[in-house]
Design a protein around this nucleic acid. Structure first.
Lengths: 113, 113
DNA sequence: AAATAGTACCTTGCAACACATAGTACTAAA
DNA sequence: TTTAGTACTATGTGTTGCAAGGTACTATTT
């Protein structure tokens, strides 16, 4: 993996959890569809990343799920945010806004090119 | 470490390299001053993180340094970007801009609270 | 009925990396 | 010569993204 791809991946990692919680907050959803939505937003995420992450967030009390039968394959786990998860997400929204400000402050000091 | 602090740290990690390269691009600088500048921007970074990171970037050909004697302690390593480092930084600027767009698109879909 | 394809969820092992911690070395002041 | 301040270095640990491989269910095809 090149340096650039690696660093770009690092950036994506940092916001993964935030984006996934946001997507779930927009309505009950199951993992495969989360992957699709992330892909649409150019934020690739794969199964091996998503499933452990959802389990972690569930164990932390931020998510819940319910099984829903599908008529085109195996049953699906539909996830929703718990109240704790909602609070958590709101904190992250603040954090993200502050981070964008901080990064722009740090990186835009020599725009006199 | 709480979930929130942990996730916030993840976000910071993702942009560390970008910010540090930006700071160095603004003029020759040594590690302790980089830490200071990052702190000013609310992007805390510690020695145990910064030194290995600088070594990595140096080995990747993105940075160079020269020793400069100090009259108030041990000599300092002043870092500068190589031409490769400049290109790399420009790519990261693009990546960052795209990431901000992608995250905002993903997270601002339900602002009808 | 058996085989194949498609979908969905799960697990294991590895590698990268931030960070805490401890250590070395240099200068200046007490 | 001891202490304090500054700067760079090294080691060990925990988290976590991801590749790779696996299980299980349904529907379709043969």
């Amino acid at each position: 993996m090149s340096n650039l791809e690696n660093t770009q991946a690092q950036m994506r990692k940092g916001v993964l959890e935030f984006c996934i919680l946001s997507i779930i907050s927009q309505g009950e959803i199951y993992p495969s569809d989360i992957i699709g939505k992330m892909k649409d937003a150019k934020l690739l995420v794969v199964e091996g990343t998503l499933y452990p992450l959802l389990t972690r967030l569930k164990n932390a009390g931020l998510l819940n799920y319910r099984w829903v039968e599908s008529n085109s394959g195996p049953p699906r786990k539909y996830y929703v945010l718990t109240p704790i998860g909602e609070n958590f997400l709101n904190e992250l929204k603040l954090t993200w806004a502050e981070l964008v400000l901080a990064v722009d402050e740090t990186t835009n000091k020599t725009q006199t090119i």
